[in-house]
Amino acid sequence: MQKRPRVVVSMGASVDGKVALTRDALLMHQPSSFLWESMTPPAADPVPIDIIEVLRQQYGCNAILEGSGSLVAEDETPEQLPTYDGDTAGLYQHFLPPDITGQPSPPHMWFTVVDSRGRVRWTEKHPNWDALVLVARSTPADYLGYLRREGICYLVVGEERVDLARGIAALGTELGIRCVLSTAGGGLNGAMLRAGLIDELHLTLAPALIGGLGTPSVMDGPPLAVGEAPTRLQLLSVHTDTGGSVRLHYAVVRHRQVA
């Protein structure tokens, strides 16, 4: 049986663990992107790491994972889609056209997005990359019809929302993916943390402080229950540079089952 794909989280953050400047400002938009880049001195690291290439070499990684919130602001209203007027029953099955899924990897890569609400509108295409959307049975039929018309693959993994454990497992069983790199925000990463899905963490800390109650952090999502233990990490490597950035690499310590 195909093992669950390895999940590696890679995040850039301020020293106080913030991954955005405010909750509502996407880092891909100005002025946030400029301000975020300015936190790290321009000549800070003469040997920058290409994390996706490292993971391709180590684990054959061929999928990146993002949440819809990294692409669409919460207060943004997506373009309305045409009403799907066919039989919707067939929409709620995986959509994996063989001409897309059969491409050799490398070089083929998957850009995977969790989007049960159907908010992302796909306007860009890149060589050797295909979009893959994780949806649920609650996802609007209009959105699933739109994905099919655009030839965008999707996996139906959950009822009211995407079941992350099922979704990650399906990446392995349906597509043979062995390693997933999450570059998502704190909400999705925090949910994966609580689901026990994270295996490694690459964290680069910029020499800056952001602060702010409610500003997204490396791991958001549900808090620990009273008496619940934090997830322990094993430090694998540390790299510092003259500009003040620190690059940390951790493995998640799995709890051993008591006989």
Results as ranks from 00 to 15, higher is better:
239 H>K: 14
27 L>H: 06
47 V>H: 13
15 V>C: 12
131 A>W: 12
199 D>F: 00
18 K>P: 05
139 T>L: 01
18 K>R: 15
220 D>T: 03
183 T>K: 07
200 E>I: 10
81 L>F: 00
214 G>H: 03
252 V>N: 04
217 S>T: 09
4 R>H: 09
128 N>F: 05
7 V>Q: 05
239 H>R: 15
32 S>I: 09
1 M>A: 13
136 A>K: 00
55 L>H: 01
101 T>V: 13
183 T>Q: 15
69 G>M: 00
177 I>T: 02
120 V>H: 12
173 T>N: 10
229 A>V: 15
252 V>L: 09
19 V>A: 08
198 I>N: 03
103 Q>A: 13
158 G>A: 03
88 T>K: 04
47 V>G: 08
136 A>L: 04
26 L>P: 14
76 E>S: 14
74 E>I: 14
247 R>W: 14
182 S>Y: 09
196 G>D: 07
15 V>D: 05
132 L>R: 06
194 R>S: 01
259 A>P: 12
177 I>K: 03
104 P>K: 14
35 L>V: 13
157 V>P: 10
225 A>N: 13
184 A>Q: 00
77 T>K: 11
105 S>Q: 14
141 A>Y: 06
235 L>V: 05
63 A>Y: 10
190 G>P: 11
119 R>A: 12
144 L>Y: 10
65 L>D: 00
43 A>E: 12
98 P>F: 05
71 L>G: 00
257 Q>D: 11
194 R>A: 07
108 H>M: 13
227 G>E: 11
130 D>P: 01
172 G>T: 03
64 I>S: 06
36 W>L: 08
142 D>Q: 11
10 S>H: 15
204 T>W: 09
196 G>E: 03
124 E>D: 14
89 A>Y: 03
165 A>G: 15
100 I>S: 04
59 Y>G: 03
5 P>A: 09
28 M>P: 07
32 S>D: 11
252 V>Y: 06
198 I>K: 02
48 P>D: 06
79 E>K: 13
115 D>I: 02
21 L>Y: 05
144 L>A: 01
157 V>R: 10
99 D>N: 14
133 V>A: 09
61 C>A: 13
89 A>S: 13
162 V>I: 00
73 A>Q: 00
1 M>T: 15
47 V>K: 02
152 I>K: 08
191 A>G: 10
34 F>P: 05
210 I>A: 02
143 Y>K: 04
190 G>S: 08
181 L>R: 05
25 A>L: 05
201 L>N: 01
14 S>H: 07
120 V>A: 13
115 D>A: 06
207 P>N: 01
191 A>E: 11
51 I>M: 13
259 A>I: 15
79 E>R: 12
179 C>Y: 06
72 V>K: 10
259 A>V: 15
